[in-house]
Structures are given as C-alpha cells and as structure tokens.
Computed example of a mutant assay.
Amino acid sequence: MKYSDLLTTVLSSSVEDWRSVPGRVTPHFVGEIQEGDHHWLKVSEHYSQWIFMPDVRISLAFGLPTSSDDPELEFEWRFPDPKAYEAFGDIRFNGSVVHRAHLLHVDGSRAVLPTPRNEVAPSGAPFGMERFAYSATESEVAFARLIDRISGHRSFDDYLRRAGIVALPDESEG
C-alpha cells in the first residue's frame, strides 16, 4: 500500500470503521530521569488505540505526550478550561508508525484539535510581525476530527470554530 493511499483510506473513513482496543497500547517509551540523588524511569504510552475493521493492518493510536517537560499549553481561546495538552496521534500500518500528528486535548479533554500554526503578517509590533490567525491543513483538520469523533466527542466543528483555527489547503506533492 502506498503512503498516499493509506492517508486517503484513513481520512475518508467513518467512525463506524474503527473498533477500540482496550488495555495498554504499545510500544512503550521509556525515559531515564535523574534529579540530584534521585533516579527513575518514566514510561510513556498512548492510551487509546483503534483497529480499522475493513483492513486490520491499519490502526490508530492517540495520547502519547509530545514532551515530558511541560505538556500544558495555553492559548487565547475562550473555553471554560483554557489549558491545552499536546499529544501524538499515530497512523500505523502492520504495527509501524507511518504518520504522526501533533494534536491537542482542549477544554478539559472535551475535544481534540490539530495543533495550530500561527499565521502572521507585518505590523507595527515590536518585532514587526503580528499573529492574525491560527491555521492547520485540511488533512490535519480531518485527522483531528477523526480522532475526536472516535474518542466519543461530538462538537469538533464548534471547537474548531471557537478556537479560530482556519483550514488551509494541503500543499501538493508535485
């Protein structure tokens, strides 16, 4: 299967195509931490995994933190809980990660959104640039929407609108 065919298959799938797999999700990522005389291992992992029922070679995993330093982010969004936590969303084929996206838990994990980029324009600001929008590509939005919906959420489009994230066309690979 070609990479582009895999992405098309996943992004055009429906919630009903996916089945949750309970229990621990592998692989586990182990990090060694040392602070002064204290030394320990930290295990991180995805906490959700789904199998694509029409082709069980395809799976999704979500929840592995993108950073162990400070996973809490703040945006100027007007959600009741202003904190956001970034996590990886993976597309796997035969158990191997073939696509990894940065996704956000927002509003107390009530929704999953794509991690946006700042769109900036020249201004009279001190550094000469000012953010005027958050953006994500159409495929990033589609993947976040899929993870959000198979996670059981139902308000993705409302959260995307309230966050002010604008979907931009994907760049062609040609």
Rank of each mutant, 00 (worst) to 15 (best):
K2A: 10
L7M: 14
T8Y: 11
T8I: 11
T9L: 14
L11D: 01
S12C: 12
S12Q: 15
S13G: 06
E16I: 14
D17V: 04
R19D: 07
V21L: 06
P22I: 03
P22C: 05
R24T: 10
H28Y: 13
F29C: 03
V30P: 03
E32T: 15
I33M: 10
G36P: 05
H38R: 13
H38V: 14
H39P: 07
V43E: 09
H46D: 06
Y47Q: 09
S48E: 07
W50R: 00
W50P: 00
I51G: 04
I51W: 03
F52L: 08
D55T: 07
I58W: 05
F62G: 02
G63N: 01
G63Q: 00
G63P: 01
L64A: 04
L64G: 00
L64I: 00
P65W: 00
T66E: 01
S68I: 03
D69F: 14
D70E: 10
E72V: 15
E74I: 12
F75T: 07
E76M: 14
E76V: 14
W77L: 04
F79I: 03
D81K: 12
D81S: 11
A84S: 14
A84R: 04
E86L: 07
I91H: 02
R92S: 01
R92A: 03
N94Y: 11
V97P: 03
V98C: 10
V98P: 02
V98L: 04
V98T: 07
H99D: 07
R100D: 06
A101S: 15
A101V: 10
L104Y: 02
G108P: 04
G108H: 09
S109H: 13
L113P: 08
L113H: 05
P116K: 04
N118T: 08
E119I: 14
V120I: 15
P122R: 13
S123V: 11
A125P: 11
P126T: 10
A133Y: 04
S135K: 11
T137C: 08
T137W: 11
S139H: 06
S139I: 03
E140R: 01
E140G: 06
E140T: 02
V141I: 02
A142Q: 05
A142H: 01
F143H: 01
A144K: 00
L146N: 03
D148Y: 00
R149W: 04
S151D: 04
G152F: 02
S155M: 13
S155Q: 08
F156A: 08
D158R: 15
Y159Q: 05
R161G: 11
A163E: 05
G164Q: 05
I165H: 02
V166P: 05
V166S: 07
A167Q: 06
L168D: 06
L168T: 13
L168H: 08
D170P: 00
E173Y: 08
G174K: 13
G174P: 14
